[in-house]
Each structure stands twice: as C-alpha cells, then as structure tokens.
Deep mutational scan, measured.
Amino acid sequence: VPQRAWTVEQLRSEQLPKKDIIKFLQEHGSDSFLAEHKLLGNIKNVAKTANKDHLVTAYNHLFETKRFK
C-alpha cells in the first residue's frame, strides 16, 4: 500500500504541479478508480481537463477507499 506523498497543504499549493498528482494517481489507483474520476489517459490531457480541487478530492478518495492497483 502506498503512503501519502503530500500533506493537504502541499496538495493545495501552487508549488505542486497537477501532473505530479495525476502521475501518482495513475501509478497507484485501480483502473476502475481512475475511470470513475476521469483520470485515465495521457497525463497532459488529463491535466488540461482536471482542476486541482478534483485531483485533491481523488487523491484523498484513493486513500479512503484503498482502491489501489
């Protein structure tokens, strides 16, 4: 089981690129989880459509539901 890579403050910070969060989610989330949160596909394309709040919610949801690969 992966550990949380970032704190809530870090997740919301401008310093953390959306692409980093997407990469983490794609590496650790199950396909059904990723599909549900519309996070499947090319990281660049996902970054265009997903806002930061959406990614933070998905990140927290992944750990709450433990839907890891």
Rank of each mutant, 00 (worst) to 15 (best):
A5M: 14
V8L: 11
V46G: 03
A47S: 14
F63T: 02
L55V: 10
K52R: 15
L11A: 02
T65H: 15
D53R: 06
V8T: 14
D53V: 06
V8K: 06
V46D: 03
L16S: 03
S13C: 05
W6G: 03
L62D: 01
L25W: 00
F63E: 01
A58M: 07
K23L: 09
V8R: 02
T49L: 14
L11I: 06
L39A: 02
S32M: 09
L16Q: 02
T65R: 06
K44L: 15
N60S: 08
E9W: 02
L25Y: 00
T65D: 12
H61M: 15
E9I: 03
R4W: 09
L11F: 02
Q3E: 15
A5R: 11
I43H: 08
N42D: 14
H37Y: 14
F24Q: 03
P2N: 04
L11V: 04
V46H: 05
F33K: 00
T7P: 06
R12G: 07
F24K: 01
I21S: 01
E9V: 05
K52W: 07
Q3P: 08
L55R: 01
F63Y: 09
A35S: 10
F63C: 02
H61W: 09
F68T: 02
H61N: 15
L16W: 04
L11S: 02
E36F: 08
F63I: 03
L16M: 07
K38S: 12
L16G: 01
D20Q: 08
K19W: 11
K44D: 15
K48I: 12
W6P: 05
K52Q: 05
A50H: 12
E14W: 07
K52F: 06
T57Y: 15
D31H: 14
R67V: 06
L11Y: 02
N45I: 15
S30F: 02
V56Y: 05
D53C: 07
R4F: 08
L34H: 01
E9R: 02
H28R: 05
R12F: 15
F68N: 02
N51P: 10
F63V: 02
N45S: 14
S30N: 11
K66F: 09
L25M: 07
G41C: 05
R67P: 04
R67M: 11
G29E: 00
D20W: 05
T49A: 09
I43C: 08
E9M: 04
K48T: 13
H37N: 08
T57V: 14
H54S: 11
T49W: 15
K23S: 11
D20H: 09
A5Y: 13
T65L: 06
A5Q: 15
L55H: 01
D31M: 13
V1M: 12
S32F: 07
K18R: 09
K44R: 14
E27G: 07
H61C: 14
S32G: 09
F63S: 01
A5H: 15
E27F: 06
V8G: 07
V1Q: 13
D31A: 13
